[in-house]
Design a protein around this nucleic acid. Structure first.
Lengths: 337, 337
DNA sequence: CTGTTAGCGCATTCAT
DNA sequence: ATGAATGCGCTAACAG
């Protein structure tokens, strides 16, 4: 690998001239610039990024903690990551993948290595001591999601509460009276998983607003669990005509339970889920959703972090995105008896 | 951020002593080692990884080109990535995500930056000029998948041919006579997408071996396309009792077409797909698969690359994994007429 | 067992 | 417009 010094020698100039020619940070005569360029071409020179970043005291790398693959939860995170790469690349950053470390101190150590300029978190819980500790350390980071106290922490999240509420608005508006709500798994609900908490609030609001009967269940992100849960709800409430869920992982099971109960979607039963549009199109009938803007969230999360990196004096941005209703084939008015 | 020099000063020793104490590359007396450790603790010192890697002439980072999210193709790649992270981390490497560059030269440039020690590719085509060019450049890389001429290129791939053949072995063994084969999309087939090519070979072998009628279709990785394709095949061949496909993205559509044709899975119709077990469990009825060992492939791909990095004189390893049959609820004997 | 010194490859502040 | 010199933070060969 040729170095900058090699280029300088070949072009008959000094190291610093080459450096400045490359960065454009000071005027270089056309003639020497040409000689330098020629030397670069002939040698096939490429700046060593490790050295450049060391000298710059900036790695231009963002760390991202990649959750273990667990059925259900992860498809959306895949979309986050995908969008995050694009957004980062646009700003000259790359994304480095890490597994979540064992404990908080290991996390802090990772950040102190100087390998990444900032980190991004997904899957944060409403009460997440890790985030508190990291804020305390002063290391720049941003969350896709949010905690209870987000003081001085940049994040992008979805307004889950309103999303669920609007799903009910829609179904009630269509004339549905008995609507089930299928939440995330007990484990997620109890651990304070943000979306589970906020979605539940939306459900509470809706049942109060419309004085709806509580037809509620929590289910694992598996087809089987979803199937059995809805089967039970359907047998307990034969007048059920619709359901709302943020737990998209169970959807195939929910669909199947409805069919096996002899009902047709959407003629006899309507389904509305909080989900990524990509997922919605892959089901049959296509799923009516409160859109989960995964692309936007991944993108904005990275942008918030990078903006903060550029002007550390400013407080990091915090954005709560709205979900919008996308009507597809899985929903319609309730059946007329 | 305290530096190694700060630690040395505080401990009353030289920089090099601290360095060696940390690396353990030469004996240090217990006493000074203790003083150094104390200084480290008091200062909260962490080695700067950028500097360390520059001096070592090794970034300990692996680049991975992350495909744009396209419905269907990507769920498995998500599992590749997940497994790759674990395997890399175990060997002290991290994974850096990049989008595929515009052209081959941009790719070569990226590798010459010294930011990554090697790169991993997914989604390689059977005839991929990029891989040829990269081999030519001498930069270390490995493929998850393979091309036509893999001389001196490390890779891990699946024996797709045998997988499809064995799917037919299984169904024929159960007594099925009319079996449809649903391939990847025309675009993938025609572009020489490895899995499409090798799976087709398996299909050819099977129809010859068992003298089966050709009931064949190519379909986009979408629910709708799969639905319409199978609907047509079912109306053209009312005696169809089973299907084999490597194109798991269309599965929900295939299931639906079968149901809408008034058939039950597996009583009236059997389905076998080449797919990741994770995906298989999420369908209902659970899917009989020729297992796609995504975890193993992601892991082995990284291991092959790292092993090569360690001993560059050896030729890189090349592994073709076998798929194994996992019988689940979607398949059984053909209906008795 | 410890210290001295010279890199790793590039950025940048002084000079001229 | 160009050059010389110093530093980024760490490793490692050489010396004692």
């Amino acid at each position: 690998m040729p170095t900058m010094q090699d280029v300088a020698n070949k072009a008959g100039v000094t190291l610093s001239t080459v450096s400045h020619a490359l960065s454009g940070k000071r005027p270089i005569s056309e003639e020497t610039r040409a000689r330098i360029q020629q030397a670069i071409d002939e040698l096939g020179y490429h700046p060593n990024e490790l050295a450049r970043r060391l000298a710059n005291k900036e790695s231009k790398i963002l760390g991202l903690f990649f959750p273990k693959y667990k059925t259900g939860l992860s498809e959306m995170q895949f979309e986050f990551v995908s969008a995050a790469i694009d957004a980062a690349e646009k700003e000259g950053y790359a994304i480095l993948l890490w597994r979540s470390p064992k404990d908080v101190e290991a996390l802090v150590n990772l950040t102190q290595q100087g390998l990444v300029d900032g980190v991004i978190f997904m899957e944060v819980r409403i009460n997440d001591p890790w985030m508190i500790r990291l804020r305390e350390s002063g290391f720049p980071f941003a969350m896709i999601g949010r905690t209870e106290d987000n003081t001085d922490i940049g994040f992008v999240d979805l307004d889950h509460t309103t999303a669920i509420e609007e799903a009910f608005d829609y179904l009630v508006g269509m004339g549905h009276k008995k609507i089930a709500y299928i939440n995330y798994s007990p484990k997620l609900v109890n651990s304070g998983y943000g979306p589970a908490v906020f979605c539940s609030e939306g459900y509470q609001k809706a049942i109060r607003k419309y004085d709806l009967p509580i037809i509620y269940g929590e289910c694992e992100p598996t087809t089987k669990d979803a199937y059995h849960l809805l089967q039970k709800l359907l047998s307990d409430h034969s007048d059920l005509t619709a359901l709302v869920t943020p737990n998209e992982a169970g959807l195939p099971g929910l669909y199947q339970a409805i069919r096996d109960d002899g009902r047709d979607i959407p003629a006899d039963f309507s389904v509305v889920s909080l989900a990524s549009p990509l997922r919605a199109e892959r089901l049959l009938p296509t799923l009516t959703t409160m859109d989960f803007p995964t692309d936007e969230m991944g993108k904005v999360g990275v942008e918030i972090l990078i903006k903060f990196l550029r002007q550390k004096n400013m407080a990091p941005a915090q954005k709560i995105l709205k979900s919008k209703l996308s009507i597809r084939q899985s929903s319609g008015p309730p059946p007329v008896k």
